[in-house]
Amino acid sequence: MFAEERLTNVATPLWRFSYGEQLKVKSESQKKVLQTLASHLRELGTDKLEITQRPDGLCCSLRTVVPSPVVNGYRNKSTFSVNRGPDGNPKTVGLWQRNIVCVRANHLENMPKKHKQVAQCYEEFLQQSPLDPCLLFHQGGHWRELTVRTNSSGHTMAIITFHPQDLSQLLCGEPYIFEEVLGLKFCISPDAFFQINTAGAEVLYQTVGKLSRADKNTVLLDVCCGTGAIGVSLAHQASKVVGVELVEQAVEDARWNAAFNGVRKEFKILCILQQWIS
């Protein structure tokens, strides 16, 4: 039980507080960061700038944290390691702690039940497998990691990291998972980034859209755009959305997502750079 509580403290450090209290803690943390930044600006001789003359000591205005409509079981992606558990079992599927002990995550409230079920099934499978886990690459072994993705429709994607990597990429099922955000449909590949909290992402995109005040004279730059969810969601407001991404598969997802959701696009690829014109 001690190991589980220690994992909870690491994975969800504010779990003892109510959600409202958590938001207050995060807001105070952000306030301290901005106060520190303002102090550094004054030290650099920029004290005459208006941003450092605010009565609250901040370098800019700090808005109230926008709460997520979902606070429990919200994760649409969870990554589990395979390593030695508190009982010494080398095929334990869970999350690492500092002393490299792998603890099952069944008690974490931010993780949905489906993710925990897949992790449990994976561990049961490993117990029956004659192959050893790959705890350290130079020591050999095979079973390495499990990533689970789910969407709001209840579909599940399981991504297994196996060493050596000489198997075909897709073992069974579909190669992608799809999610809907603000009435738009997004294709998500195993390695592509997508916001962990889907409901929270909708609030985020709407808030960014309002604060940016983007219009037909605006070019929006989406750095590390992943599947292009933010850019595609805001494309109707701006004249152009430029997305920059390093993961090639995510770029392909972003292209498909832009086309499928009716965003007219022209591609200028330099390294891996994508440009959409709405």
Rank of each mutant, 00 (worst) to 15 (best):
Val101Arg: 04
Tyr205Gln: 04
Thr52Gly: 00
Phe162Asn: 07
Glu43Asn: 07
Gly154Leu: 05
Gln22Asp: 02
Val232Thr: 07
Val241Leu: 10
Leu108Cys: 03
Cys225Asn: 08
Cys224Asn: 14
Cys187Ala: 14
Gln97Asp: 10
Thr12His: 14
Val71Ile: 15
Tyr205Glu: 05
Ser152Asp: 10
Val65Ala: 10
Cys60Pro: 01
Gln120Cys: 05
Pro130Ile: 02
Val203Ala: 14
Gln237Arg: 14
Ala158Ser: 02
Lys216Trp: 03
Leu220Thr: 01
Ser152Cys: 08
Gln97Cys: 08
Met157Phe: 05
Lys77Ile: 06
Pro190Trp: 01
Asn9Met: 14
Glu109Pro: 10
Thr156Tyr: 04
Asn76Arg: 08
Arg84Val: 15
Glu124Pro: 06
Ile269Glu: 15
Ser29Phe: 11
Lys114Phe: 04
Ala250Lys: 05
Arg264Lys: 12
Leu221Pro: 09
Cys59Gln: 03
Gly85Cys: 03
Phe193Gly: 04
Glu245Trp: 00
Ala3His: 15
His138Ser: 11
Gly141Arg: 00
Pro112Trp: 03
Tyr19Val: 03
Ser18Gly: 02
Leu270His: 12
Ile100Thr: 11
Cys60Gln: 13
Asp166Val: 06
Phe193Asp: 01
Val242Gln: 13
Arg6Asn: 13
Ser78Asn: 11
Met1Phe: 15
Glu248Pro: 04
Lys210Leu: 09
Lys240Gln: 13
Arg264Gln: 09
Leu221Val: 13
His138Gln: 10
Val208Pro: 01
Cys59Gly: 04
Gly200Val: 02
Ser18His: 05
Arg264Leu: 10
Ser239Trp: 11
Thr64Asp: 12
Arg84Asp: 02
Gly262Asp: 02
Leu135Met: 07
Thr46Gln: 14
Glu28Gly: 08
Glu50Arg: 10
Gln237Leu: 15
Lys48Gln: 11
Val242Ile: 15
Tyr176Pro: 01
Glu124Ala: 13
Thr92Trp: 09
Leu34Lys: 01
Lys77Pro: 06
Asn89Thr: 11
Cys134Phe: 00
Thr12Gly: 10
Ala258Gly: 09
Phe80Gly: 02
Gly173His: 01
Arg75Cys: 10
Ile277Glu: 11
Pro175Leu: 02
Phe193Val: 01
Val33Lys: 07
Gly173Glu: 00
Ala259Asp: 12
Lys216Glu: 15
Leu246Gly: 09
Glu145Pro: 03
Asn261Lys: 04
Leu146Ile: 07
Ala11Tyr: 09
Cys224Trp: 15
Asp166Asn: 13
Ser233Val: 02
Pro190Lys: 02
Val65Met: 09
Lys116Cys: 01
Ser152Gly: 08
Val101Tyr: 06
Ser278Asn: 14
Thr207Ala: 12
Gly20Val: 12
Val103Ser: 00
Glu5Ala: 15
Glu21His: 10
Asn257Val: 05
Gly73Thr: 04
Ser152Glu: 12
Ala259Trp: 09
Leu220Cys: 06
Asp47Val: 10
Val219Lys: 14
Ala38Val: 05
Ala38Glu: 03
Gln120Tyr: 12
Phe125Asn: 09
